[in-house]
């Protein structure tokens, strides 16, 4: 078989494949709020006194890991949060905010004994993480739909 090769058609085929993947990769609505809950739990835990920093962090980390496993099994995809591309600035900014909140939670919660501060930081982290997760998902899928 000898066909005329159309580079434009080849690019359209490749772009369409990525666009189909983008449609399929959409996270379910419950993913971002649950991710926020897990992340907020980690931030709150590290600032609380007693056994909370270890126990709470481990439980919340396992929860977030399980959440990602469910998403992976559901979509048939695996993606690194630190991947290069449009999502990287969001990932780094998100990490900076979460680490800042964790630092504040530890400083005021464990060093100064104000237990309400880690809880407040955890609540803020939960909201930030939920929005960041949804935004990351949108950015990633928008990148996939671009013309190659």
């Amino acid at each position: 078989m000898t066909d005329d090769f159309e580079p434009r058609q080849a690019l359209a085929t490749a772009t369409a494949a990525r666009q189909r993947l983008a449609a399929r990769a959409a996270s379910p609505r419950w993913y971002a709020p649950l991710y926020g809950l897990g992340t907020g739990g980690i931030v709150a835990s590290v600032g609380l006194p007693g056994p909370w920093p270890v126990a709470g962090s481990v439980v919340c980390l396992l929860f977030v890991a399980a959440l990602y496993s469910v998403w992976k099994a559901k979509t048939g995809l695996s993606v690194n949060g630190y991947r290069r591309g449009r999502t990287l600035p969001l990932t780094l900014g998100f990490l900076a905010v979460i680490l800042g909140l964790a630092f504040v939670a530890v400083h005021f919660g464990r060093d100064e004994g104000k237990a309400w501060v880690p809880l407040a930081c955890g609540a803020v982290a939960a909201i930030v993480a939920a929005f960041a997760s949804a935004a990351w998902d949108r950015l990633w899928r928008a990148e996939m739909t671009e013309q190659l």
Binding site: A10, T13, A14, T15, A17, R18, R20, L21, A22, R24, A25, T75, G76, L77, S78, V79, N80, R83, W140, E143, M144, L148
Partner: peptide
Amino acid sequence: PVRLQICAMLSATDEAEFALLRDET
């Protein structure tokens, strides 16, 4: 074309499952 589609899909992600690639190609 099939390998082009496979590479296009894999370029957007770290890994994709065999069944997904089969369905999408």
